[in-house]
Nucleic acid binder design. Structure first.
Lengths: 191, 191
DNA sequence: CGTATTGGGTGCACTGAGTGCAACGTGAGC
DNA sequence: GCTCACGTTGCACTCAGTGCACCCAATACG
């Protein structure tokens, strides 16, 4: 019944998941996406090829699916957000706190832009954030799902823009700066 | 030399391209993405499997890559846009004119949401529009590429939100209405 | 005109992603 | 200890996508 089967099993599963994602990021950032096979990743993670696909639906997903801890962290940030100054400024702070957690992963992913297939997955990765925001905004605007979704999509667009405008060789702090600037620009309605 | 090889060849190629896309949209909207093979599409289009991949890099691309005519139409709309009232309101009108051209294709695509792989491609399809806008805004703001890209990404986010909030059974005009409303909401900075 | 060239279409063989299925083994409940 | 649940595994299979050599029709050129 409770989604969590049992602590030990759950931990095994998370470890296995994390080992596969770590191996995928390491190999792909070293050799490039096309030069790494799922078999390579599985071997490096100490897992069978079949198990890889038990965790991730596609090769690209191993690179871009959010770590459960990060998903929980985002939920916590949203739950604790201060909306007294409005929804959009509150989201600004949430996203700034979020990106600070993920510097290393973002740097690896940034080196992968250019491949069309990967770019598509890249956008869904930022969409994981957008969807969480959807739900959060939607709870505050239960009678306006369109606006809630638009806020989530727009926040994801800001993150994507900052991500693409940033270079992994730059100071990581510059990425946060770009995110803040993006939120500010949208907040003025591109006046 | 000139990119266009010669009128006849160019026309042959476009016809073949269009036949494949039409076949892909028809079959997939009828049976679903996974139940249609590239072979099926090629046969229905009267073309070899190998030719399919000469036109489209992936199966999903056959569904989502923009028709050359539409790409040219967008460029023309942007070139003729009236920016006297500001960049964002001008984009609003361009996007409204654009979606009016594509009602049928959008209705088919709308039936395909839900598949994660397809959703990823879906976003890149709206990104084709965003990229054209990037270039257009970038020409007007040559010293601020970040803002130019942000405008393009945000416009794509508005289109995507309207697309997801719309139902193919709705009046097509409602889709345009949603696009307009999305641009208005962003234009106020989510105040 | 006749000949050479170009460029799209095709067939073939090959790699690798992704899936269904039937096991196996180890933690958990009784 | 027995049984059940569940993550893992191996195997066989379909199909997406690619490299390559070849064919044919449309063009360029003499």
């Amino acid at each position: 019944m409770g989604g969590v089967p049992t602590p030990v099993r759950e931990q095994q599963r998370r470890d296995s998941w994390a080992a596969v994602q770590a191996a995928a990021l390491a190999l792909v950032s070293e050799r490039g996406f096309d030069a790494v096979t799922v078999e390579d990743v599985a071997v490096a993670a100490g897992v069978s090829r079949r198990t890889f696909f038990n965790h991730f639906p596609t090769k690209a997903a191993a690179l871009f699916d959010p770590h459960p801890d990060d998903a929980e962290a985002l939920a916590a940030l949203l739950a604790g957000a201060d909306t007294s100054g409005g929804v959009w400024p509150a989201l600004r702070e949430v996203c700034l706190a979020l990106v600070a957690r993920q510097e290393e992963v973002l740097a690896v992913r940034r080196r992968l832009v250019g491949d069309p297939e990967l770019d598509a997955y890249h956008r869904t990765a930022h969409r994981h954030v957008g969807e969480a925001i959807d739900g959060w905004v939607g709870a505050q605007l239960p009678d306006d799902p369109f606006s809630a979704r638009l806020v989530g999509e727009t926040a994801a667009a800001v993150l994507m823009t900052a991500f693409l405008s940033w270079s992994p060789d730059d100071d990581p702090a510059r990425f946060a700066e770009l995110v803040g600037r993006g939120f500010d620009l949208v907040g003025t309605g591109f006046a």
